[in-house]
Design a binder for these strands. Sequence first.
DNA 1: AAAAACATACCGACTAGTCGGTTTATTCTT
DNA 2: AAGAATAAACCGACTAGTCGGTATGTTTTT
Lengths: 194, 194
Amino acid sequence: MQQRSEETRSRILESAAKLFSERGFNAASVDDICADAKISKGAFYHHFESKQALFLALLDGWLKIIDNAIEASKDKTAPETFVQMTGAFPYIFATAGNHLPMFMEFWLQASRDEKIWQASIAPYRRYHQYFTSLIKKGVEEGSFVNVDPQIASRLIVSAAMGLLLQSLLDPEGAKWEKVARESTTMLLNSLVKK
Amino acid sequence: MQQRSEETRSRILESAAKLFSERGFNAASVDDICADAKISKGAFYHHFESKQALFLALLDGWLKIIDNAIEASKDKTAPETFVQMTGAFPYIFATAGNHLPMFMEFWLQASRDEKIWQASIAPYRRYHQYFTSLIKKGVEEGSFVNVDPQIASRLIVSAAMGLLLQSLLDPEGAKWEKVARESTTMLLNSLVKK
DNA sequence: AAAAACATACCGACTAGTCGGTTTATTCTT
DNA sequence: AAGAATAAACCGACTAGTCGGTATGTTTTT
């Protein structure tokens, strides 16, 4: 029966996500992951070719979540999309504590590993392109002031990344959800034609 | 003569900065650092208590650079300071390629190590406070529109961090210096009273 | 001569990955 | 339906190598 197999596999993924977040890619050993998932090393290498392959599998899962989020906000006007994003903040920051260290691990590994970089940077560029075309649309339909969509998109993505990074580094430093919401408002204000 | 001693120490710091950036804290071994600095392991442990202590010494150096940059832009009006910062971008992004992976390593270590977190988060909070008071001053002296200084400061710091992060992850993805300059202009435009 | 600076050899703990063998589930044969 | 044959899932001891750190000895500086 492949039910057992799949449960083992997902247990490995869960434990890996947890331990990579807590300790980092290097510090979380394969033995640790096996112990946490309560499976043997044999089972581990039956399901994953290597530790790096496991990491890539984890990355894939994350990227799909982001892509779905983008997909969900199609067919809306530019300002509407921003408002919707604002609505998603509570969820993002509620789960941030769990996923963000993992994300950071992705970034770091990506900056050093060509394979991982390829897998992680392509979707991220799509993200930038999405915002660029969103703003371009907003400018063309007259709801936004005449800004350079490329630059504005970079600014938005930068602010988002920086905010996530800060909320990870210093969770108690501010009410990040509120900051995110009000920052979006501020950015939107500077974009919307009065 | 302590000249030799000091040169050894700075050689260790240089090699460590280089290798930590290239390979990360864990992957860059003490032996690697010693080999690169062309000194022995005995010399290494004569100058630094541990690998972590070396890391903290490196962190201290970086934080001093930031503090000096803040110090240098005192006694100026709010918009002036922004303009001056814009002028510093070429330098920042020229040296970013060397220092940023190191910075990322700091962030990652900080998120996991209490000691390093304490050392790195305190100055970073000062940085936020600096911008808050800068914007507050701008609002009070009438050159800025009436924004919440706290929020605007968060937004600026976030954008800066995100931009640095992106330029590290995807150096060829954009002309980052230009993006930084124009983003600053855009942010400043949304702040300055017309 | 004393002390600081450096070199070398070494240690125990830990790591990713391997491999021969066992258990469990599925399919085929009668 | 019962049993034999096959395949997938899993186990855990083992390897070969790396790591941070130390112990001990040598050179250089004062």
